[in-house]
Design a binder for these strands. Structure first.
Lengths: 341, 341
DNA sequence: TTGAAAGCGCTAACAC
DNA sequence: GTGTTAGCGCTTTCAA
């Protein structure tokens, strides 16, 4: 009588309960995996659920539980085409993997430009998700502050540029870059150029700092001719490398500050017919595209991206569970030397 | 008394109502922009909302409205690294833009592999979103069928491979490819090679069909040596082009079936030192990376991606509004010749 | 134009 | 182990 034929009005707990001959509460227990249900009752409920194709209504559920079982990965950028960066593809993959056998769902929110960032902020503040992993790319981004102030469980991917005390996970980019550069120095090189990353992104800044620190420790004065900056993309790396070859023909070795830039830089090197006596050293997330390149000898220092994403989800879920202690902890991660030419 | 100090328990409609000295219903009307509210009352409510930093609880709201004001873009892939394809970046951008001044939110759901696809299917079936735009990439994908059967408002990006009668939006890939090839034929070319796309993806299939149709219409017999298949990536395009140059040194002109492949193919061409007498013609989404290339002469045939995404959102929102008529409509879109060398 | 009241579908005490 | 009951915060008739 009450069924609107045709309409896809999905069945409720009560209907399942009636069909199974038990109460709403028992159905709820079965659906939520409570152990305190008699096997027979459980079976009856399960059968009714299957027959009715019952699916719990998440709105009703989260109205009372105050949870959504969903976290968001927010990609906040001002305008650039960062979405097609292979690094993000990897992060998404690793995050999905980390949540695979959890009840947690992952949604991606793209926030490019001010309007979209506001929309995303509203979405999050409304409580659509239990927590946020935020990749904020440039220093001018306001989303980290907005979300932090909104008291949403939050983990930043990458150290915040403004020293804010929020939870974050980052690789030891400076240490890794230094390590890579030291490797080149150990090979006897002195004219070590660098394809650096953008200096308004923390990874770019830190990696460049590591490069400089290694040189300084070796008593080598910085030389502006040996520094070219790319935007972390393949094309940017190619352009930067071309610039370096033109400006400083006596380059000894090269330190490149990201995988895609390395792909571009190595290609420029090959195409130019030139070569450098030493290796090319790369710090990045260990993209297959770089690992596949073997033409010029290559040293890579890789972020443990799987560990990092696992750490991020751990920290976020702990906050979601109400563990406020974790709120202000910082969680650096060491880089790992992967291969050496 | 009832306020848990410390806890960020957000204010409710009742609290706003009390502070504003009106009833819950009036607050609701103001929040939802109903015109039937006296200006004074409205002002009082707005002030209270601001003071309390009130944000409506979406769970409570959608429990009664049966809407979530959110749609999902689902990226369904078996395993490949499609997430870093610049094409998706563009689609996401255009979709966000299309929804920018709507109340609708957009979330991205990554479904790679069977387990994630099931998780996404459950998420959608539970009613977390009002509708889905689905990019299903390969023919084996089961998600289109699952979601279609779940009665969720659905628009497919790209014609379904199995002729299912679901709503979709696609470009006229066959027509565009044919047009591009005919352009090469009109230039007097007869040995026209092709860097084709994967033959388990509808865009790959259709574009290849268009190429073949053009040749056939010109009375040219197909030659397997002139066909190399890539995976729609830059690297794949480069490899395919190398293969073509090796197998058929007498190539006249080349038709490439996607932008990233064109970037790769053109690079291979340049690096090889070889050139083809005619142009390279590309059909794709008009990536800036291709448009920027001017070394070998280039003809591009582009999908109107902004129109297509707008059409997708229109069709989806119409379904969400309950316009069932649209359910089975198919919505082809013509390709547009952009430039000619 | 406004308020009172009924529920949306679910979970979680609490009593049995 | 199971059922009863009381809300979660909101929208929406229906009267006033």
């Amino acid at each position: 009588m009450t069924t609107l034929a045709g309409r896809a009005s999905s069945p409720t707990l009560d209907e399942v309960a009636e069909l199974a001959g038990v109460s709403r509460a028992t159905v709820s227990r079965v659906v939520n995996g409570s152990p305190k249900v008699r096997p027979e009752a459980r079976r009856a409920v399960e059968e009714a659920v299957a027959r009715l194709r019952y699916v719990p209504n998440p709105a009703a559920r989260s109205l009372v539980t105050r949870r959504t079982d969903t976290i968001a990965l927010v990609l906040s950028e001002s305008d650039t085409q960062v979405f097609s960066d292979p690094f993000f593809a990897r992060v998404v993959r690793e995050l999905s993997a980390a949540l695979a056998d959890t009840e947690m769902n992952l949604v991606l929110l793209a926030a490019r430009g001010e309007r979209e960032q506001e929309k995303v902020a509203r979405y999050v503040r409304q409580g659509h998700v239990d927590g946020v992993i935020l990749m904020s790319l440039h220093s001018q981004d306001t989303l980290p502050a907005v979300l932090a102030e909104a008291q949403v469980p939050l983990v930043l991917s990458g150290r915040p540029l403004d020293g804010r005390t929020v939870c974050y996970v980052d690789a030891d980019n400076a240490g890794g870059a230094r390590e890579a550069t030291e490797h080149l120095l150990a090979g006897g090189r002195r004219r070590i150029a660098t394809v650096s990353g953008p200096q308004d992104m923390i990874a770019g800044i830190d990696r460049h700092a590591g490069y400089r620190a290694a040189l300084e420790a070796a008593g080598i004065a910085p030389d502006a001719d040996l520094v070219a900056t790319g935007d972390f993309t393949e094309a940017g790396g190619a352009r930067a490398m071309a610039l370096l070859l033109e400006r400083a023909p006596d380059i000894d070795a090269v330190f490149v500050a990201s995988d895609p830039m390395a792909v571009g830089a190595l290609r420029t090197l090959r195409e130019s017919g030139r070569s450098v006596p030493g290796d090319v050293a790369v710090v990045g997330f260990d993209d297959a595209a770089v690992a596949a390149t073997s033409d010029p000898p290559l040293t890579t220092v890789a972020q443990p991206l799987d560990e990092m994403t696992r750490l991020m989800t751990d920290l976020l879920l702990r906050q979601v569970e109400g563990d406020a202690e974790v709120q202000a902890r910082v969680c650096p991660t060491r880089l790992v030397v992967r291969a050496s030419a």
